[in-house]
Design a binder for these strands. Structure first.
Lengths: 249, 249
DNA sequence: TTGTATCGAACGAACGTTCGCTATATGGTT
DNA sequence: AACCATATAGCGAACGTTCGTTCGATACAA
């Protein structure tokens, strides 16, 4: 059966449950590293700290963000912060871990739900864009601060990135094997697709300024990739279900 | 007349003269801000400082790089550095200024030398890749540290980025007007092309590890872009003049 | 009264930057 | 050629500031 491309709204709903699950997992993992016992206040403040860190670090860089800045942004005192984190490095570790699992899981689910290389490719593209849309601050942080991370986390970030790219490589290989996709180096193609996908969260300010929605960008990427990858003749992709104003002058 | 796509070697030769010219301009601009009078030693040490800064900052971030690190890397003492720069901020300004002019100039020259939208697009893609290949450390630095720059330089960096994108937008518009290029939002297309181009210097470690040369990547980008942008039927681009082993397994 | 969450002053380390000093090169005078 | 006077390149200890982090005091809840 042919799936129509999932919309951002549909993704958001499915995503919410996955996120709370993983968020709870993360909290339980780090419960023993916090000095705060009551779950309610602990969870709330931890989230506040993470959000504030992403906000500050994405504005001026993680190294430039002092714990006094973070203290002011969260409303907690300098000493109070240390009831939740062991150190500044621990904070960056905490944030990094939070997202890595989510990415792979989310992408793999989306791919598994689609049938055939073309639909799998579409699903992967959309899932990646929708995921990075919902967690843009995290992805931006993870990309920009990757080289400032502790050794272990840097490696993990790179491995995660490679894994995502290999998901695309696999889809392309399968499509080529079935004769649906044109020949060409699958690794190189996958890398270029990922470059297009990453641009969405790296230059989000630009896209927002131009009123380009995720759905709109997803269509554009899908179009470019399919033009490059499908064997001709290429039937133009059907307009997506959303009523975006993508291409008006 | 139909130009064959210029090779990286050809670009390098043309580039060298342009670089020494601008490098000298930069030096003369900052001569009055240095305490060192003799041109020979001043120029050599200034270059050493800039190179070391790019090396260190690209490894661990500009903020994390201390002037003591820089002192060790350059062989100059901490105090000695201040004969060449006014402050750490001044250093980042100096580096930033060095490259901005170069980018636009180089691209505009390449575009002007080509005839017709398709050749102009090819020329722009290749020029951008070749330029960022020769000055990869600078471009990486400029991208990663953009938000840590002083206010004025941040603006300048953004303006430069927008200007580059507009060069591509212009080419696409011209091609669409002539009926050579398929319809589609030119800004969105230009943005995606730029994403592909930036990936070259942002993920250079990956490409190097996979033995992908610039020429090879240039062909791949050109192919994908032309597939997406040309009106069909699309005649496959001729193999470039270089003897790269792009697609062997 | 006991336990917990939060505070803010305080500490040592590391940072950017300054400054008085030394070593070396330069150039005019004997 | 030998000498001194002067200017300059470079050094590294030291300064004040800011950083991450600690810790005893405090406020509040049970």
């Amino acid at each position: 059966m042919q799936h129509s491309a999932p919309s951002f709204r549909e993704f958001s709903d499915r995503f919410r449950s996955l996120e709370t699950t993983l968020s709870r997992e993360l909290f339980r993992e780090h419960r023993d590293q916090m000095r705060v016992k009551k779950e309610e206040t602990a969870a709330e403040n931890l989230r506040r700290i993470i959000d504030a860190t992403l906000r500050l670090a994405n504005r001026k860089g993680f190294q430039s963000m002092s714990l006094r800045d973070l203290s002011a942004e969260t409303g907690l005192s300098a000493g109070g912060l240390y009831a939740y984190i062991r150190s500044k490095d621990d904070l960056v570790r905490l944030i990094q871990r939070h997202g890595v699992a989510l990415t792979l899981r989310s992408l793999e689910d989306a791919i598994a739900a689609a049938d055939g290389p073309r639909d799998k490719l579409r699903a992967a593209i959309r899932a990646h864009l929708f995921l990075t849309e919902t967690m843009q601050p995290w992805f931006y942080f993870s990309y920009m601060e990757a080289k400032n991370l502790p050794r272990r986390e840097t490696r993990e970030a790179i491995r995660s990135e490679v894994a995502v790219e290999e998901l695309f490589t696999g889809i392309i290989r399968a499509g080529q094997a079935r004769g649906v996709f044109r020949n060409g180096d699958p690794q190189l193609l996958a890398g270029m697709i990922k470059a297009l996908l990453q641009d969405w969260y790296l230059k989000r300010w630009k896209h927002r300024q131009r009123n380009v929605s995720v759905e709109c960008y997803a269509d554009a990427v899908q179009n470019m990739v399919e033009h490059a990858v499908l064997v001709p003749p290429y039937d133009e992709a059907p307009a997506a279900a959303h009523n975006a104003t993508c291409e008006e002058g």
